[in-house]
Design a protein around this nucleic acid. Structure first.
Lengths: 352, 352
DNA sequence: CGAGTTTTGAGGTGCGCAACTCAAAAATTG
DNA sequence: CAATTTTTGAGTTGCGCACCTCAAAACTCG
């Protein structure tokens, strides 16, 4: 970098010398151990600042010589996106082992607050770090706060509980995701033909109670009502991320909505939508936008059934979760920019 | 993970014991030092496999106790995106220092093969790793190969030279990026009105000779001719990433093309396009799609001058470059999924 | 078989830090 | 002022590995 980029291997010893104290004292200050006067502590801090000292990560980690236990609480039940996250966590086995981190993936019923809370209640004391797909519910918030009180680092994953005391949220801004889906639908449909009405937009959602889905519906509705008022929004229907339920919902939607021009699925199970449209011979006639890249949505993107997907990268989320928990337990700094999870737009042409 | 996730701190000592050899021999095998019979080497490898041994990253790094010198060769001349990359590299100072890596950012005229080659010729021997924005030109390929021959790890950044012997490319698939831009233009314009022609699409490019720009034009043209044949493509004009040249080009384009409906800029300097359109009172009337998120393109996305941007994340690229070079020089494995740089679509609603 | 070569084992050192002990020095108190 | 408390210095240990030396053991070949 600028040539002051000191490649002289700066050690704590140098800091101690610069501050005019012993190595032991410098160590006490840097590691926050007691028994140092405010004046000396200041001298050391000043030297750290001035020299730009940072403990060599490798040496610190080696010296600490302790291992960590992390738990990741994910919804069970075959949700493809969650399975992707789990796979990506497993794919990091080497990364975890190289840092002496043991990881346990716990499947739980995330849709039921009582069950999830009971599961969380078993964790305090057993883990140094916990990541969970949170239900934003008073009981869950309390369970999270209990974990934090017990000294466990807690991050929420994919769906947040912002009023809990979790240290970090690993996931996308779901309002922005919903808005993005709304803009895609609006722009792809184009302006209304002269003299015609805009048509109806069907909305399918996973669950009425998960915060991420609610935020997506909110963002989607916001954009449509503000910028594409010629489009009629149907009342959102709940498909619980289940392809079969979604298929039935779309069948009914098609039967009851002659002017249907687009369908937005804020949850999973989009494959059921494709099936219902194919049955009716309406694939590619009705504009579809959904979420998350899975084998099924990839296929439907390629064959044109879906025009676009709004997605988050499960690999990035798994790695971010790992880095953040590791940084939290070892007291390292979190690189905010690196941990920001993007709202991705995926078309057929930029499929990864 | 599965409960065989051995959190017993597995060391090389354990491997040696399991293989029935001494620590020294195990060490020789693992670190590829000579003087071990094929039979014993096999025993050790087998034990490594069976126990799933991986050297503890921190200990390995500490023991190696050597420092590295990296050089990053970027185009000079105020290109905003390249400045972002440079800023992101500087922002990683701590990361580099914690790994004993000294980084030098070298500004060079990337558009001129001779100058760039001369610059590259000074590097062999002075650096352990080099990242560069490559010009895909025989002389540059030769310079890259010289570096590799001299034992320097080389990665290309943003623009590739695939036939050189560089170990890795950090950047996006530019054909996909161009295709994505093409699809956005085609879809946002919508189907042609009955009885009307589709209109003309202007194409501005940065340089005719940089590979990334050429690939983008190719991908863009591919999609437009295949899927939106009703649109006329104008001949690409070269703006050299310069806002003022771009402004003049667009002025001329507007004057000479009454049926202009969209402009695609495959390079930088999009702000000049916005200025020319504003002058003519045509902002938001003509669809614009460009590349890269900068303060200027962000503004134009927000005010509607640009409908969408196709972008790559300079932060991700800077970090990926650092990780890859570090992995290459220390002989660690590269996590392919983590280093894949995505082609991002940015609308007003998913602006980071 | 012996001389030479190759392979193996034993052991040491240091990387930079965290975490600790113990004693000496300095500051504080009655 | 002495007695006590607080602060500081000096030193040790071990984290797991890379890298090195030296000698012993196991082979090879004429």
């Amino acid at each position: 970098m600028n040539n002051h980029s000191n490649d002289a291997p700066l050690t704590l010893r140098d800091v101690a010398a610069a501050a005019g104290v012993s190595l032991a004292t410098a160590d006490r200050v840097v590691n926050g151990r007691p028994g140092v006067s405010a004046k000396t502590a200041h001298k050391v801090h000043e030297a750290v600042q001035r020299l730009g000292f940072r403990p060599l990560a490798a040496a610190a980690e080696l010296a600490r010589a302790r291992s960590w236990r992390f738990a990741v609480v994910l919804p069970g039940g075959g949700n493809r996106f969650m399975m992707d996250i789990a796979d990506n966590i497993r794919a990091q086995a080497d990364w975890f082992r190289a840092r002496r981190i043991g990881v346990e993936i716990i499947e739980a019923d995330v849709f039921d607050a009582d069950t999830l809370a009971a599961e969380l209640a078993t964790l305090p004391g057993r883990f140094d770090g916990v990541a969970l797909v949170a239900l934003d519910h008073p009981r869950i918030r309390a369970a999270i706060d209990d974990l934090v009180d017990g000294g466990t680092a807690v991050v929420t994953l994919v769906s947040d509980a912002p009023t809990s005391r979790r240290q970090h949220y690993v996931g996308i801004d779901n309002i922005a995701a919903g808005r993005t889906a709304g803009s895609l639908v609006g722009r792809f449909l184009g302006p209304p033909r002269a003299g015609e009405a805009g048509g109806a937009v069907g909305i399918i959602t996973g669950s009425g109670s998960l915060r991420d889905h609610a935020e997506r519906r909110f963002g989607f509705g916001q954009v449509l009502s503000e910028e594409y008022p010629h489009l009629t929004r149907l009342i959102p229907v709940e498909g619980r991320d289940d392809p079969e339920r979604n298929r039935d919902l779309v069948r009914r939607m098609l039967a009851g909505t002659p002017d249907l021009v687009a369908i937005y699925n804020s949850g999973e199970g989009s494959v059921g939508i494709g099936e219902a449209l194919a049955e009716a011979g309406l694939a590619r006639k009705i504009l579809c936008v959904g979420h998350e890249l899975t084998p099924a949505t990839r296929r439907m993107l390629l064959d044109g059934t879906f025009a676009a997907l709004v997605a988050q990268d499960p690999g990035h989320e798994a790695r971010s979760m790992a880095r953040v928990l590791h940084a939290l337990v070892t007291g390292q700094e979190i690189v905010a920019a690196q941990e920001h999870i993007r709202v991705q737009v995926i078309l057929r042409d930029n499929l990864p």
